[in-house]
């Protein structure tokens, strides 16, 4: 695998994760539990889709086959998607969404902090920009972790259920392969073991403060690196890609 191929693959992983979690959040539009949260979730969704646009634009450029960011987003099938399994999990109730976002926000907070130092200038520039936004995302979900976890019996239980349900997808966040090895060597991507340490520490702190229990399940599901997804991604793509696939020449 060449450096350029590894970079393309890596950009898909970052870009697809942002696109899919952004799309998931956009499903809350008009359904938020309160107006302010509805607006907040859609604002965050917009940040993710914006981040995905810049990453996939760069991915298409690195690939050099004349594809655009829209081709990558709308014309690839499920198995070609490289988003993390966590990002495609359904919204569930509001507590489940907060649990998913929190686990992911802590991850991107530390990951993008490292990517700011990437030797690839474009990745570093996107990371600097995005990290400012991620800091707001993490603050938002952390507050909701405290509010729901340390709230009523009902909110506490629902958030605990959300965490328990999603825990099996967290090992997928830190899965590394040849792509990572090539890019770590080139100083383009960070070692995910380092991110894992910081992630575990922060997650533990917040979970304890929110009076919740860290899930103990040992079941693990990985596979996003090879495009092996859970059943949920196909349905999401069917909805997201319907219009451009049905009307391929449609323009805004």
């Amino acid at each position: 695998m060449t450096l350029e191929q590894a970079k393309f693959e890596y950009l898909l992983r970052l870009g697809d994760s942002s696109l899919i979690i952004g799309h998931r959040l956009s499903e809350w539009c008009g359904h938020g539990p309160i107006l302010e949260e509805d607006i907040a979730l859609i604002n965050i969704a917009l940040d993710f889709v914006g981040n995905a646009t810049s990453l996939l634009t760069y991915a298409a450029q690195v690939e050099g086959k004349g594809r655009t960011e829209d081709d990558l987003a709308y014309l690839r099938n499920e198995r070609d998607y490289r988003n993390l399994l966590l990002t495609e999990q359904p919204n569930g109730d509001y507590a489940m969404t907060i649990a998913r976002q929190f686990l992911y926000d802590v991850y991107t907070y530390f990951l993008y902090e490292e990517l700011k130092n990437s030797k690839d200038e474009t990745i570093a520039a996107i990371a600097v920009k995005s990290h400012k936004e991620i800091t707001y995302h993490l603050r938002h979900t952390t507050e909701w972790m405290y509010r729901l976890g340390d709230g009523t019996e009902e909110s506490h239980q629902r958030l605990q259920n959300g965490l328990n349900e999603l825990w099996m997808f967290t090992s997928d966040l830190f899965d590394m392969d040849e792509v990572d090895a090539i890019l770590i060597k080139a100083g383009i991507a960070p070692d995910l073991n380092k991110i894992k340490e910081a992630w575990e520490k922060r997650v533990k702190e917040v979970v304890a403060e929110a009076t919740l229990q860290l899930p103990t399940s040992i079941a693990k599901q990985k596979g996003s690196r090879e495009g092996k997804h859970t059943e949920h991604l196909g349905y999401l793509l069917a909805e997201m890609q319907y219009l451009p696939r049905t009307y391929p020449t449609a323009k805004w």
Partner: peptide
């Protein structure tokens, strides 16, 4: 503060 996220991405409410 009512919400960290306002009418546009750059504003809080």
């Amino acid at each position: 503060m009512i919400s960290q996220f306002g009418s546009t991405a750059c504003k809080a409410l």
